[in-house]
């Protein structure tokens, strides 16, 4: 098991290529809220690329990327939910969450966890908010019954992927402090598991994008 998680830690990022590839293939069908999922996938790819370049090529500190990426990531995911919810929930709900989170994340970066430290507070808040949005999404789908076959409905896959990843994220960030006192191998395994869940998320998102409907 340990080698597997270590392998995932090193190579988990490549699973991003699945969702990126499918997004590019289905690009002209990514309309409406699916467009924001495509944007999220693109943002993730750009973030990974910047991380790789700064860490492996330029060998410079790059935690500041995470601070910026967290804010952008949440806002793009929130825009996806905002478009999908339409008038089902109050229209001010998601924009309110976006504004609130952005302000709190910026304040966190300035006063609590600066750009040279991991922004675990912001990441944890982001996880909580995405979990809440995902549950609201499930409720909307259960109420409206938009598709006969749920396994062909893009939002089901995308929402499930986001929920799985961000729900597990909470425990990883709670674990991160306890992991610092453990041998490195334990830490690597935990982050390998994190990489596995990220890969699962992108796999699910890829499946969801594959089922994007052709416009009539």
């Amino acid at each position: 098991m340990q080698p597997f998680f270590l392998w995932m830690l090193s190579n988990g990022s490549y699973f991003l290529l699945i969702s990126v590839g499918i997004a590019l293939v289905r690009l002209r069908y990514l309309t409406g809220y699916l467009g924001f999922v495509g944007l999220f996938v693109g943002l993730a790819a750009v973030g990974e690329l910047f991380s790789f370049l700064t860490a492996r090529v330029l060998h410079i500190p790059n935690l500041y990327i995470l601070h910026t990426y967290t804010i952008l990531e949440f806002n793009v995911i929130a825009l996806f939910y905002h478009h999908f919810f339409a008038r089902f929930y109050p229209r001010w709900l998601v924009p309110g969450l976006m504004a609130g989170f952005t302000v709190l994340a910026v304040l966190n970066s300035i006063f609590l966890q600066d750009l040279t430290h991991s922004n675990t507070y912001a990441r944890s808040l982001e996880s909580l908010l995405v979990i809440a949005l995902a549950l609201l999404c499930y409720y909307k789908v259960l109420t409206e019954l938009p598709a006969k076959r749920l396994n062909h409905y893009p939002v089901f896959w995308i929402n499930t992927g986001l929920l799985l990843y961000f729900a597990s994220n909470i425990f990883f960030f709670m674990l991160s402090n306890a992991l610092l006192k453990q041998p490195k191998q334990v830490s690597f395994m935990a982050w390998g598991l994190h990489a596995l869940l990220m890969a699962l998320m992108h796999l699910f998102i890829g499946i969801g994008l594959w089922f994007s409907p052709r416009p009539r």
Partner: peptide, 15 residues
């Protein structure tokens, strides 16, 4: 650590 891991696994299973 073990409690967090156990709790995390349980939460994931519930999810």
């Amino acid at each position: 650590l073990y409690m967090l891991v156990f709790g995390g696994a349980l939460a994931l299973a519930l999810l």
